[in-house]
Structures are given as C-alpha cells and as structure tokens.
C-alpha cells in the first residue's frame, strides 16, 4: 500500500544562514576520485606525512579525504555516489567550538569560518570527538620537527620535505588539533591585494588549493553571499544537499549528487 503523504521540507532561510561569506560546492557526479585535491591540500597547508604505520592505523592527517562508498547489496536500488570528498564543512553552528575548554576552536566573525588556534590547543581532542563529520586531524606525533638536532644529516626524510613547506602556513607540533581552513591564507592574500588596489575581491580571482587542483572542476569555491558568483549559481542546483543536515550545523559545503 502506498500513501501519498507530502513530506514537509525544512529550509533554514534565517539571516545567519545567508550572511556566510565563503562556501564550496562539490559536484560528486563528476568527481573521479583522483585524490589530486588531497595532494594539493597537503602541499598548500603543510599537512605532514605520518608514515606507513600510522597511516595504516588511521592517523593520516589529510584535511580533505575522498570517501569511497559502495552500493550496498542490502538495499538494492539505492544509488550512492562513488566518491565523496569530505573536508571541514565550516559549520555556521559548529559542534566543535563550544566544547573546547581553552578557546582554541573558535569562530571567525569576518569570514564565518571555524578556525583552530594551534598554539592555544592543549590537545583534549574533544572537538575531534564532537565533530559529526570527523574531519579534524590530530598531530599524534611530531611529524614536522625541524628543530636543531633533527637535521638533514641524521634525519634526511624530513630535510627533503622541509624544502616544500609553504611559507604562508605554519607547521604544527605534536598534541595539537588541526583542520581545513578553506585556505584562509589565500583568502587573506586576495583580500589584501584587492584592498591595495581599492576594489572588492573578484569572483574567480583565487580559489582554494583543492579546487585549483581538481582536474574535473568538481570543486568550486567562492563567496556564497554574492548571488552572481560561480559557487552560488552552482549551489542553486536542485541536486544540492548538505552532509548530515538534520543536525542543524548549517554547513558551508554543498554537495551536488543524484544527477545523470
């Protein structure tokens, strides 16, 4: 017996949802799962390599990961996307923020992003626990230790990697939580440049490392408070949805899925 019940649609159009500035749209239908975004993000943000053993134990610190989801034989007929890039969803109403006892996980009012203050973090890992998307990365060891005594001579592995560090981004020590920042160094770089030229940041003037690296252009990044930006127009698609929307976290990342 089938019943035609019209399900209520919950949409949140409150002011705080609409004022968010930076956002991302990921088209899962054209994502090939090539992991280029993962590599680009690691390069851009000095994300350390944890080594084989720790990576095998689930401690890889990538700020973005490609989730591969298989169709479940138990539920034939359900169509699931094969690849799902997941990074920090930059929730407007973030569960990670109120649980930090020392204000290391804070909300940026100007960009409406969740920021992690690395040198304030004491490593309680409560934010990681409370993140429904499990996108926070903890420095389980000193993966980037360039102090004296850990030089090219006695630790050549690190010395090589030292040369590729991005000078715009700090490195993190052991016992500190870190996470995707939406490439805030690029945001600020573009804003500073625009300010010096006396104009607003143009859409498409810069983009995040993952979006820049994506060969299929599955990721678009930009201002979502500008209705004419590429990311706003992509987000208007009827295929758009948010991860775990029912939790009310108001994420800034829209996933496009379910198309042809």
């Amino acid at each position: 017996m089938t019943t035609n019940v019209e399900l209520p649609v919950f949409t949140n159009n409150s002011e705080e949802v609409l004022q968010g500035r930076w956002g991302m749209v990921i088209d899962q239908d054209i994502c090939t799962g090539c992991q280029a975004c993962v590599a680009a993000c690691s390069m851009e943000n000095n994300v350390p390599f944890v080594g084989e053993d720790d990576a095998g134990y689930g401690r890889a610190m990538h700020w973005i990961r490609i989730e591969r989801l298989w169709d479940n034989a138990k539920f034939p007929g359900t169509k699931m996307s094969s690849y799902q890039p997941v990074m920090c969803q930059q929730c407007h109403n973030a569960p990670c923020e109120p649980v930090c006892p020392v204000y290391a996980s804070v909300h940026s009012e100007s960009e409406d992003l969740n920021l992690q203050v690395y040198n304030r973090c004491i490593g309680t890992r409560y934010c990681g626990n409370n993140c429904p998307y499990q996108v926070r990365a903890f420095n389980w060891r000193d993966y980037t230790d360039f102090r004296e005594g850990n030089t090219a001579k006695n630790n050549p592995k690190w010395a090589v990697l030292q040369n590729q560090l991005n000078p715009d981004v700090t490195v993190r020590r052991r016992g500190v939580m870190e996470k995707c920042t939406f490439c805030i160094q690029r945001i600020h770089g573009a804003e500073d440049k625009a300010k010096s030229e006396g104009r607003e940041v143009r859409d498409g003037e810069f983009t995040s490392a993952c979006a820049q690296a994506c060969p299929a252009s599955a990721i678009s990044f930009g201002r979502i408070d500008d209705p004419n930006s590429a990311v706003s127009r992509a987000g208007e698609s009827s295929r758009g949805k948010h991860l775990l929307e029912e939790l009310g976290t108001l994420p800034r990342v829209t996933y496009l899925t379910g198309g042809a």
Partner: peptide
C-alpha cells in the same frame, strides 16, 4: 615526549 601517537588513540577514537 613522543606525543599521543604511542597510545592507541586514533580517529575516530579520539578518547
């Protein structure tokens, strides 16, 4: 000195 890596905690078992 070596960090929580010597313990068994990992994602998602942060605790």
């Amino acid at each position: 000195m070596q960090g929580q890596g010597v313990a068994g905690v990992t994602r998602p078992d942060y605790w």
